[in-house]
Design a protein around this nucleic acid. Structure first.
Length: 175
DNA sequence: TTAGTGATATCC
DNA sequence: GATATCACTAAA
């Protein structure tokens, strides 16, 4: 049996979102449910959201109660409710005071950020918790070779055209 | 294509 | 206080 890949620690996430987003593709999201059951999904798609100058980022209009976790040091979860229905999972990245994050957009078998959180039973209670702690959710390192392509981000029609065009969406394929 | 859903931000 | 907005999804 191959050795299981190690969990990703805080250092992985204190880098810039543009480094972390492609690095997370191919990694696994490991969920331990309250009943003790464990499920792991392989990440196939991520997006980077980079600071107040990025008009697609939640921090674009400054710090609010909702986006406060983005301003923390990288290595915690930022989970928020979208359209009243869907929980969207992000990993906060970068240094403290630099509001950045990576949206986990899709996993194998779960195409869509709302579907993967539903599949893993992820909700807002994880927001602000450390990614390498006892939150019942952690990341495990990539296993195998992946080809990664960059593309414009999805669902940000409200953003400035230059930000809409940035290739900050990372789609992975097993090589 | 469009309805559904509710927290949040931004106005009175 | 009210209302407009939204990093989406399922159904039609």
């Amino acid at each position: 049996m191959p050795t299981p890949p190690p969990p990703l620690g805080q250092d992985f996430f204190t880098r810039d979102a543009l480094e972390v987003a492609p690095a997370l593709v191919g990694c696994r999201l490991v969920r331990t449910l309250p009943d003790g059951e464990t499920r792991a999904l392989t990440i196939t798609e991520t997006e980077a959201y980079c600071g107040e100058s990025d008009s697609a980022c939640h921090a674009h209009r400054g710090r609010t109660r909702r986006n406060a976790p983005l301003y923390e040091r990288g290595g915690i979860f930022y989970v928020y409710l979208c359209y009243g229905i869907h929980w969207l999972l992000n990993a906060v990245t970068g240094a403290e005071g630099a509001p950045q994050g990576v949206l986990i957009r899709a996993c194998e078998g779960y195409p869509g950020p709302g579907r993967l959180t539903k599949a893993l039973g992820i909700g807002g209670e994880l927001t602000g918790l450390p990614v390498d702690g006892c939150a019942g959710l952690r990341f495990a390192a990539r296993d195998g070779e992946w080809e990664i392509t960059a593309a414009p981000r999805v669902g940000i029609a409200y953003a400035e055209p230059e930000d809409r065009a940035r290739p900050w969406r990372f789609i992975g394929r097993r090589a």
